[in-house]
Simulated scan of single mutants.
Amino acid sequence: MAALIESMRMCYALPIRGFRRLLEDTTLHGYRLPANTAVLINNWSVHMDKEHWGDPEVYRPERFITETGLLREDDTFLPFGLGRRRCMGEQLAKSFLFQTFAGVLQKFQLVPADGTDLKVTALGGFNLAPKTYDIIFKSR
């Protein structure tokens, strides 16, 4: 599960979360934002914050494991949003990802094809998608 969470932290589908509207005048980090201002939430800046994660560009699932080996929650991990507008399908998505990931790894060893570069690279746009690469599924 920690490997899936770290993967979602680094490779999220929506780098910028939908519009929100301020209901009242607000001050944020010294900037005055009047009521009715449209605000976007930058997931990339949260999930790749060096102050919080230390080395956010490095894949380290152990970030989400406690010293006793339990799964650790992190309030800065927000792939499904936050608050009242949090994704309603979060539990379904997490269950589906886990079952699919575990099912594939139970039956196959995933090996990159010759010459395949597996560096994390996303094709940009409104949402992110991984670049195409070749993987060989070897039966276990």
Rank of each mutant, 00 (worst) to 15 (best):
M1K: 01
A2H: 01
A2L: 06
A3H: 03
M8K: 02
M8L: 14
M10H: 06
L14D: 03
I16F: 15
R17A: 09
R21W: 06
L23T: 15
E24N: 09
T26P: 07
L28A: 04
H29R: 14
G30V: 02
G30K: 10
R32Y: 12
R32I: 03
R32M: 05
L33M: 15
P34A: 00
N36V: 06
T37Y: 11
T37I: 02
A38D: 13
V39N: 06
V39R: 03
V39M: 08
E51A: 11
H52E: 12
D55G: 07
Y59A: 13
E62C: 01
E62L: 01
E62T: 01
I65K: 14
T66Q: 08
T66I: 04
E67Y: 04
E67C: 02
L70E: 14
L71P: 00
L71C: 07
L71A: 10
D74L: 04
D75L: 04
T76E: 11
P79W: 05
F80R: 12
G83P: 08
R85N: 10
R85Q: 08
R86S: 05
E90Q: 14
K94D: 02
F98H: 10
Q99T: 10
A102T: 10
A102V: 12
V104Y: 01
Q106S: 11
K107Q: 15
F108Y: 15
Q109V: 13
L110R: 05
V111C: 05
P112R: 10
A113F: 07
D114C: 09
D114T: 12
G115M: 08
G115Q: 05
D117A: 07
K119P: 00
V120A: 15
V120F: 06
V120D: 02
A122H: 04
G124W: 04
G125F: 01
P130G: 13
T132A: 14
T132D: 07
D134A: 14
I135Q: 04
I136F: 01
F137N: 09
S139I: 01
